[in-house]
């Protein structure tokens, strides 16, 4: 599923809204998540999962092709941890439940 399909599905469930409004809504939600992470906050959506930011310290790296040592600056990377309910739902149809 891609973003436009997600928008279509949400629009289908909300026939009183214009598709362009639904598009705006989906973008506001996604943008708010990114903006929060950029501020250093975390976003926890119970049952779905949590978005957090992890810090990666500066380190000496190596160019694998030339073997040359390079300095890698510190960076902040987004991380998603799947929520318990979603994790269980993904495996629901298998085995004997859970």
């Amino acid at each position: 599923m891609i973003k436009s399909e997600l928008i279509q599905k949400v629009a289908g469930a909300n026939p009183h809204l214009y598709q362009r409004d639904v598009e705006r809504i989906v973008n506001v939600i996604l943008d708010e998540i990114i903006a929060s992470l950029a501020r250093g906050d975390r976003v926890e959506l119970r049952g779905f999962g949590a978005f957090t930011v992890k810090h990666r310290a500066a380190r000496q790296g190596r160019n694998p092709r030339t073997g040359e040592t390079v300095f890698v600056e510190e960076k902040f990377v987004p991380f998603f941890k799947t929520g318990k309910e979603l994790r269980e739902r993904l495996n629901r149809d298998h085995d004997s439940g859970d």
Partner: peptide
């Protein structure tokens, strides 16, 4: 309700084993 619907649609798609690609997000 809309926030909930968006999460529900993403979850539903993943449950069906689909990949969910949201451009400019991830």
């Amino acid at each position: 309700d809309l926030v909930e619907t968006v999460l529900k649609e993403i979850t539903g798609s993943l449950e069906n084993g689909e990949t969910v690609k949201l451009s400019s997000f991830g």
